[in-house]
Every structure is written in C-alpha cells, then in structure tokens.
C-alpha cells in the first residue's frame, strides 16, 4: 500500500465537510514522529481538503469511501484497520465517537490505546503518550507495547504547515465492512455554535450560576478575546445556554491558552474539563470558591462589576 517511511496514520476529523483544525494539529505532531499519512472516511474528499492535508505534511490521503457507514464505530474501525496495516501508530482526535471507533479497531488489531493524550513520542522505538488525569492533578506517561493508537486532545500541539509539503497522493482503500446489529434510524444535525468550536478555541470565557442567566458580558469578553463561550452544568441545566456549551467531565473538555471562569464555583466535575488550560482566570464573589485554588489570577468580586471594567480596559489598551 505504502511508499511512506515510518508511516504515522492520522484519522481526519471533518466539520461541515472541511478538515477540522485538531486534525492539522495531529498532522503537525505526526510530522515530528515519522511520515504522516491521512486516513479519510466518508464521502470522497474535495481538492481543497486534499491540498490542505498535503500542506500539513500528509504524504498520502487514504480514502475509504464508506459514506454514512462511518457513523458506525465497528465499521469505521474496520475501514481504519484496512487503511493502516503498515502504520505502527495511529493518531485520532480524542472525541467520544473516536474513542468508540478506536476501541473497536483495537479489539480487532490488538493495538494498545491511550486517549485524552496531550502528546506522544517514540522512546527506544516504543510509543509513549502523556496525559493529565484525575481532573488534571496528575501527569502520567504511558508506554504502548506494539501497535499503538493515541487519541490527542485539541489545542495540545500548535498546528503549523510543513516546510516541505507532503504529496497527498490519493490511495483508495477497499474494505469489507462488518455487519452490525445496530441501525441508526435518525440523524438530526445539531446547529453548530457560531465561531470557533469550544473544544478548539484558544480562549474560553465561561459563565456559571453567578451570571444569573445573563451571558451578555461573558459573550462580549469572549468575542473581544477571539474565544468561545463556555458554561457550567448548572447554567445549561437552567436552560440559560445550550448543552453544547457545557465544560466539564460530562461535557466538553477544553485546554485553551486562556480560560476565564465567571461566577463558577469550581466543582470537581467542572475542573476536570478545564484544569489543563494554559492560564486560568477566575471571577467569583466568594473568596473561598474552590476555583481560586486552581487559577493563576483571581478577582474576588462581582462579575457584573469586574467584566465591564476589564472589557473597557482591554479596548482602551488596543486603541492606544
């Protein structure tokens, strides 16, 4: 199948038919490990997407044109298995669906899996992945014996184009898809949050119960800083903001360069989804709120006083 030397397979993540940014991050990471080969599932890629994969170093784009069958973890797993026989390492973006897909894949290939990783490298010819676990209170390094699959979190590598672009030659992959017992009977698309997706945003400004349901200031700061709006579970449960904005262990895990928590107490479930962020800022009226234990900069005060002043000061600085 391959002419690539030490191929590192990267499963392409699509958003509205285009390559999602975490895939470009994974390709960048793959370049530091070997020769990236992109694995594409679904409908045939368009020329722009292929060109972009090449720009980020993909030597090949292996296409398993299995259409909507890619929604079935066992089928997607089988397609990836067919496309990555020669690769000692597969990188995927760590999403809930990909975790299911790689589990199915690993059951058939015997590969070892680490998900939610922040990075990966070869040590003495073996794959080692690093993660933060237990609500980001521990750093862990895990060695994978033999064939390896690593799920990488968005925002853990800075995506950069390759100095020498890859050829991005299309390699069609034929695969016999396994039968599954499950049938997907309806797929109702979810309206995507405008702007940068939460999981990939370089800045996240989140509001919790302390906002009282008023997200105007939180949204204004997020827009000013080029970030996305997040929320706590209490806020989404109240119906103040949609579930897609929820940050935490049962919501989206985020690792932006800057996380601003406004009126969020910092429950362990929330912290687990944001504690690995670069810089953490908290605004809370309660000086004993647990969020202050994990922040770099905290303001004890009302977000309704602090945010407008901060927004004005940032604007003034930029105008200057």
């Amino acid at each position: 199948m391959s002419t690539a030397d030490n191929p590192i397979a990267v499963l392409v993540e699509l958003r509205d038919g285009a390559v999602a940014r975490p895939t470009l991050e994974a390709l960048t990471l793959a370049r530091s490990l070997g020769t990236p080969v992109a694995v594409w599932l679904g409908t045939e890629p368009d020329a722009d997407a292929v060109a972009q994969l090449g720009e980020f170093g993909a030597a090949e784009v292996r296409v398993a044109a299995i259409g909507a069958e890619a929604r079935y973890p066992a089928k997607a797993g089988a397609a990836i298995a067919a496309a990555t026989e020669d690769a000692s390492l597969l990188l995927v973006v760590s999403t809930f669906l990909n975790k299911e897909i790689v589990t199915r894949l690993a059951v058939t290939t015997g590969a070892g899996v680490v998900v939610d990783a922040a990075g990966v490298e070869f040590v003495d010819g073996e794959v080692e992945a690093f993660q933060t676990v237990f609500a980001a209170t521990w750093n862990v390094r895990t060695r994978i014996a033999g064939k390896a699959i690593v799920g990488v979190r968005p925002n853990t590598t800075t995506a950069s184009a390759a100095e020498a672009p890859g050829a991005a030659s299309i390699v069609p992959i034929s695969v016999q898809l396994p039968a599954t017992r499950e049938t997907v009977t309806a797929v109702e698309p979810v309206a995507q949050i405008e702007g940068v997706p939460l999981a990939e945003a370089p800045v996240v400004v989140s509001g919790g119960r302390g906002t009282g349901g008023d997200y105007a200031l939180v949204t204004e700061l997020a827009e000013l800083l080029g970030g996305a709006v997040g929320a706590s579970r209490d806020a989404t449960d109240e119906g103040w903001i949609s579930h897609e904005h929820m940050v935490g262990q049962t919501g989206t895990t985020v690792t932006p360069a800057l996380y601003v928590a406004c009126g969020i107490s910092g429950a362990v479930h929330h912290r687990g989804g944001m504690q690995a962020s670069g810089t953490i800022v908290a605004i809370n009226m309660d000086p004993d709120a647990p969020i202050f234990e994990i922040c770099d900069f905290g303001v004890v005060g009302s977000l309704f006083d602090v945010l407008p002043q901060a927004i004005e000061a940032v604007k003034a600085h930029r105008g200057a």
């Binding site: 922040c295 004890v300 006083d305 602090v306 945010l307 002043q309 901060a310 000061a313």
Partner: peptide
C-alpha cells in the same frame, strides 16, 4: 495572584491579560 475588587478589579484583570 488573587485580588479583591474594591473598584479596580477589572483593570487589574485587564492588566494581567
């Protein structure tokens, strides 16, 4: 760094950022 807002908390936050 934790500051208490006594009228300047927002400015302190902006300065940090």
């Amino acid at each position: 760094q934790i500051v208490t807002d006594t009228g300047n908390g927002g400015n302190a936050l902006a300065a940090f950022l």
